Amino acid sequence: MTAGDVQGAGALLLAPVVLLAVLLVVVSGLLVRERRTGRRLRALLAEVSTPALAQAPPARPRAAIVVNPSKFAHLDESARRRRQAYTAAAFRTHGWEDPLWLETTPAERGTEQARAALAQGVDVVLAAGGDGTVRAVAEAMAGTGVPMGLLPAGTGNLLARNLDVPHADLTAALDLVFSAPDTAVDVGWLEVDRTGDDPAPERHLFLVMAGLGFDAAMMAGVEDRLKRHLGYGAYVVSGARALWGPQARVKVRVDDGEPVGVRTRAVIVGNCGRLTKNLVLMPDARVDDGFLDAVVLSPRGGIAWGEVAWAIVTRDRRGQRRVQHLRGRSIEVSCAEPQEVELDGDPIGTALRIRVAVEPGVLLVRCPPPRG
């Protein structure tokens, strides 16, 4: 074999190696280029998608306000508009949508309006009115898991007083909507049997107190004209008129116990016990303890009423012959003669039998935590 032949054979052997090397270089270049293109594409997508996400802010919360216009009848149209504008501005300042406004009517006192608000998916429903409006709104809110707030505008404002919600300061009441926790509270249910043997008695929700006898007669005797001019003093005037009525013969049954016959002027059952800032009818009543407290008042004559007043002012927990304290999950009162009945300060006519029961923790209220 000549030298030329050897060189030719070597060239033939090197050719595939060179070709393979060239292919490796080309493939490597393509892979590098593909990776760079992928990185550029991902960066471009990130640049495009990030601003789009930033431009879609989270949905802002919204409240509904159920307003009883009769509580603002003393304001002229301009004052009412200023009050509404101030309230809406407070919500905007805290990052909320403008509230949904729903007015009550004599036929629809707040329950229907609250249900309409819930259907629109609001985050909280506020009751702007007296205890009747609060009670009607609560009837729709109980068990829903959506909190209720209070913007008190009535005379008694009993629930607001018991939950330490400012009842004469709109700004302070609104502050609680944005800062206070949601507290689970009990509700009471009152069955009213007007004939004594009604198979389907009326059923009403209440939040503060339900009563039969003197206190209901006092509430029934309050004139709207006096409430406008005297405020809480109207109840004092009406109470003085009803003070000297006769005692009633009733039977009281607590839970599954035996009925006990008493002669009384009033049986008052409370989910909470405060009447005013310093006047507490049931010192041990708590709105979140799963129980109802009750007092049976049995005075006869001026001196006996003095004993009752002293027991209330001193917050006597022991009870005595004029003031008896009861506690249970249900309380039933049967009467020999029809007696006036009230719930949360509203008279609802007469009845021969009432039954009151508690439903624990089914209503969320935006308020300071209840005091022990």
Rank of each mutant, 00 (worst) to 15 (best):
T2N: 06
D5F: 09
D5W: 11
V6T: 13
A11Q: 15
L12F: 11
L13G: 07
P16H: 13
P16I: 12
V17R: 12
V18F: 13
L19D: 11
L23R: 15
V25F: 11
V26Q: 13
G29E: 04
G29L: 07
R42E: 15
L45T: 08
A46Y: 09
E47Q: 14
V48G: 00
L53T: 08
Q55Y: 06
A59F: 08
R60S: 12
R62C: 14
A63V: 08
V66M: 09
V67F: 05
V67G: 08
P69K: 04
L75V: 05
D76N: 15
T87C: 15
A89D: 14
A90D: 01
F91G: 05
R92I: 13
T93A: 13
P99Y: 09
W101R: 10
E103I: 01
E103V: 09
G110P: 06
T111A: 14
E112Y: 10
Q113F: 12
A119L: 13
Q120P: 11
D123Y: 10
L126A: 11
A127F: 00
A128E: 13
A128L: 12
D131H: 07
V134R: 02
R135S: 15
V137M: 08
A138R: 09
A142C: 09
V146C: 10
M148D: 02
G149M: 04
L151M: 09
G154E: 02
L159Q: 00
A160L: 02
A160G: 00
R161A: 12
L163T: 00
H167D: 09
A173W: 02
L174H: 01
L174V: 02
D175G: 06
D175Y: 07
P181A: 01
T183C: 13
V185W: 02
D186I: 10
D186A: 08
V187I: 15
G188H: 07
G188V: 09
E191Y: 11
G196S: 06
A200M: 05
P201K: 04
P201V: 03
L207T: 10
V208Y: 03
V208Q: 00
G211A: 10
L212V: 15
A216E: 07
A217E: 15
V222E: 00
L226I: 00
H229M: 08
G231T: 01
Y232C: 01
Y235E: 00
L243R: 08
G245N: 06
V250L: 14
V250Q: 00
V252F: 07
D255C: 10
G257C: 12
R265L: 12
R265W: 04
G273L: 06
N278G: 10
N278H: 14
V280Y: 05
V280S: 00
L281M: 12
D288I: 07
F291N: 04
L292E: 03
V296W: 04
P299T: 03
R300L: 08
G301S: 06
G301I: 05
G302F: 13
W305N: 00
E307F: 11
A311G: 01
R315F: 04
G319P: 01
G319L: 02
G328V: 09
R329G: 13
S330T: 14
S334I: 04
A336I: 03
L343K: 08
D344C: 11
D344R: 10
P347N: 12
I354H: 07
V356K: 04
V356H: 06
V358Y: 07
E359S: 13
E359Q: 14
P369N: 04
R371C: 11
